[in-house]
Measured scan of single mutants.
Amino acid sequence: MTYRVRIENADGEVVTIEISADELREKGLTLEELLPPNARIVEVEEVEP
């Protein structure tokens, strides 16, 4: 499974990243732990691999 994640950074700019569930598991991280300081998740969407 892959996630498309929209993130708002500290400057108010919204960027989109895609990350797979396998990648998260391998790194032992959650989506929140990948965020840079002062950023927030705006939207998470599951996409087909």
Rank of each mutant, 00 (worst) to 15 (best):
T2A: 10
T2W: 15
T2C: 08
T2I: 15
Y3C: 03
Y3V: 04
R4H: 06
V5H: 00
V5Q: 00
V5E: 00
V5L: 08
R6F: 10
R6D: 02
R6M: 10
R6P: 00
R6V: 14
I7V: 09
I7F: 15
E8N: 02
E8D: 03
E8C: 11
E8S: 06
N9S: 11
N9P: 03
N9I: 14
G12Q: 03
E13L: 12
E13W: 09
V14E: 11
V14I: 14
V15C: 12
T16C: 06
T16W: 08
I19E: 00
S20G: 07
S20D: 09
S20E: 06
A21Y: 10
D22A: 13
D22V: 10
D22L: 12
E23A: 08
L24Y: 03
L24R: 01
R25V: 11
E26T: 09
E26P: 01
K27Y: 05
G28L: 05
L29K: 12
L29A: 09
L29W: 07
T30Q: 07
T30I: 05
T30Y: 04
L31Q: 00
L31R: 00
L31D: 00
E32A: 11
E32H: 08
E32P: 07
E33M: 11
L34Y: 15
L34A: 13
L34D: 01
L35K: 02
L35P: 01
L35Q: 01
L35N: 01
L35F: 06
P36D: 06
P36N: 03
P37A: 11
N38I: 01
N38M: 06
A39K: 03
R40N: 13
R40G: 04
R40K: 15
I41P: 02
I41H: 03
V42L: 15
V42I: 15
V42C: 03
V42A: 02
V42G: 01
V42S: 02
E43F: 14
E43N: 10
V44Y: 07
V44K: 02
V44R: 01
E45F: 12
E45A: 04
V47N: 04
V47G: 04
V47R: 05
V47L: 12
E48R: 15
E48Y: 15
E48V: 14
E48S: 13
P49G: 13
